[in-house]
Write a protein that binds this DNA or RNA. Structure first.
Length: 235
DNA sequence: AACGTAGTCAACCGCTCGCAA
DNA sequence: GTTGCGAGCGGTTGACTACGT
């Protein structure tokens, strides 16, 4: 993809922002608001790309940005959110008002990542579901073919705390992806429905028999969309 | 004091998505 | 359906700093 018109200027400045540039950007946005990041630098008198301006504003200049070290509570939120959402930093940032995705990402890589160790417990793998939509519809769409519910414990090297989570492992038959969705502890039917919605928003998902045995999901019924090739989970 | 190494974090890059034409 | 563009996201880079030798 070629660069947007406004961003093809090779004489654009890169690197750290000066105080003067910050002031120009802030005063422009305060006066005219954000209307077009690509053209804004030109009107604000900045030799910067729109992307650079946007990043500077969102990560540093925007009001109410919290600076300084992260609190214990914020750390816990990041750790738990990351176990739920993975590297979706912008989603995690919405749970931490005043913190930017970039800041959280940096904090994760520099402080938290090394503290977390995952200890999967294969013996708890409890339930597998196989389905292949192609057999029914002939459509060449990627679909979840297997779901494993397993448990893993997360502990911290400084021994501050630990918790156990239930994790869904999803293997897509055609896709290259090997996704892992943490569904909290303990996993609930609602959690499973939630992650299914994230993965296949257009597909119906139903638990045929709303009970969880020994923290295992069972009696999974995928309405309309799937053919149960195993015969284990028929409606 | 000089140098090397590791840690931190602001900024960049490449990509995808959504929307309008 | 295709193309072009703006916005946003996540991975990566590199400048700067702190610390150790």
């Amino acid at each position: 993809m070629r660069a947007p018109k406004g961003e093809m200027n090779t004489s654009l400045k890169k690197g750290s922002w000066s105080l003067e540039e910050d002031q120009k950007l802030v005063s422009y946005i305060n006066r005219y608001g954000i209307w077009n990041w690509t053209r804004m630098p030109e009107f604000a008198g900045l030799l910067r790309s729109g992307k650079s301006c946007r990043l500077r504003w969102l990560n540093y200049l925007k009001p109410n940005i919290k600076r300084g070290s992260f609190s214990k509570e914020e750390e816990e939120i990041i750790l738990h959110s990351h176990s739920l959402l993975g590297n979706r930093w912008s989603a995690i940032a919405t749970r931490l008002p005043g913190r930017t995705d970039n800041e959280i990402k940096n904090y994760w890589h520099t402080h938290l990542k090394k503290r977390v160790t995952h200890t999967p417990n294969d013996s708890t793998i409890s339930s597998a579901f196989k389905a292949n939509d192609n057999q029914n519809t002939g459509q060449s769409v990627n679909h979840v073919t297997e779901i494993f519910i397993s448990q893993s414990s997360t502990s911290f090297e400084d021994d501050s705390s630990s918790y156990t989570t239930s994790t869904c492992s999803i293997d897509q038959e055609i896709g290259i992806k090997d996704n892992y969705y943490d569904i909290g502890s303990p996993g609930t039917v609602e959690d499973l429905q939630w992650f299914w919605k994230q993965l296949c928003p257009n597909e119906n998902f139903e638990i045929g028999n709303n009970h969880v045995q020994d923290q295992h999901f069972s009696d999974l019924v995928f309405e309309d969309s799937f053919h149960d090739s195993t015969g284990l989970y028929g409606a």
